[in-house]
Design a protein around this nucleic acid. Sequence first.
DNA 1: ACTGCTTTTAGTACCTAGTCATAATTAAAC
DNA 2: GTTTAATTATGACTAGGTACTAAAAGCAGT
Lengths: 189, 189
Amino acid sequence: MRFKKEQRQRLLIEKIEESPFITDEELAEYFNVSVQTIRLDRMELQIPELRKRIKSVATNQWNEKVKSLPLDEVIGDIIDLQLDERAISIMKIQREQVFSRNQITRGHHLFAQANSLAVAVIDEELALTKKAEISFERQVKRGEQVVAKAEVKEVQQDGLTIVHVHSYVKNELVFSGKFYMYRSNKKES
Amino acid sequence: MRFKKEQRQRLLIEKIEESPFITDEELAEYFNVSVQTIRLDRMELQIPELRKRIKSVATNQWNEKVKSLPLDEVIGDIIDLQLDERAISIMKIQREQVFSRNQITRGHHLFAQANSLAVAVIDEELALTKKAEISFERQVKRGEQVVAKAEVKEVQQDGLTIVHVHSYVKNELVFSGKFYMYRSNKKES
DNA sequence: ACTGCTTTTAGTACCTAGTCATAATTAAAC
DNA sequence: GTTTAATTATGACTAGGTACTAAAAGCAGT
């Protein structure tokens, strides 16, 4: 039996996402319907024709290659910042940040958000991480919004600064870390 | 004056390389010759038609994307892997990975390399990081090649696995970390 | 069983950005 | 000034569509 419209259209979206270089004819064969049906579906779903899909893949990545370089000096969006005191950033977990098998966020993204927040909160041209103790408290899934809160705990006379970062999804702790930061061009990150 | 054949063909190659999404008609206008001449030129020079050029850009980059997701599942290139024993990966620091001000690698990239190596070394469908203690020993600059070595230190009966990762630039320790990993769908990363 | 509605097919004309082949025109070389 | 090379024109055909019209099939309620 062939699928009915609704399901076919859902599958169509997937199919095209998965392999955008497929013609209407091939799709028609795949779904065992006429070419016209596929075209109606594409129209309803606002899916452009093959050539435009190909072109957009080509141009997107043309642009991405040029573009995707800045943007991530800080991971996540900083929404509050009190230098040398505290800072808050939010980050929504995207598809690219999760393991495809189970949709769980790969740890280094949570670390990156926290670490870059720890860098940002310090009132200095540049701070570098010297050491960190971190703990992943609960799994974070795709689509969830992670709120990271950094607090400067201690500034030693040599500049070493201890920053605590706690990350939450809806008030639930998902990550915590204690970062030992050096100011300016002293040590490492 | 219009160029003569030889020169026009040299420029044609450049032009198409520079902006591969240009039609024969636009090229004809650009060089002030007929469309047919452009087509003859393309034939002589073995340059495929617009649609094939677009498609090849798209497939190239689509493959890269498809490849670079699983390849991105591990940060850096794994060059040695002994499951549940040890693993080595290398990563060359690119422009995008450093602070533009001083060319020092942002910490989360070193962490990401180490963390994903710790995930990879574990002989399980999927491992998640529970906790980590890490230390940035020396600054890493753009262009340097970081060699991360992971060693499985301890596997407890509940599956908790401790992995040590040491990262080097030319035999000099730049990063070290102790990762507490859970196997499969137990806790967090 | 018949009506009314949605869904699916079919068919036509037209489009873009080409290919391939042939012929005619123009420019350059000797 | 003729020959050769380069350019342009012309017509037929292609893939992968759009846009539109119209017929047929499927089904749901009465």
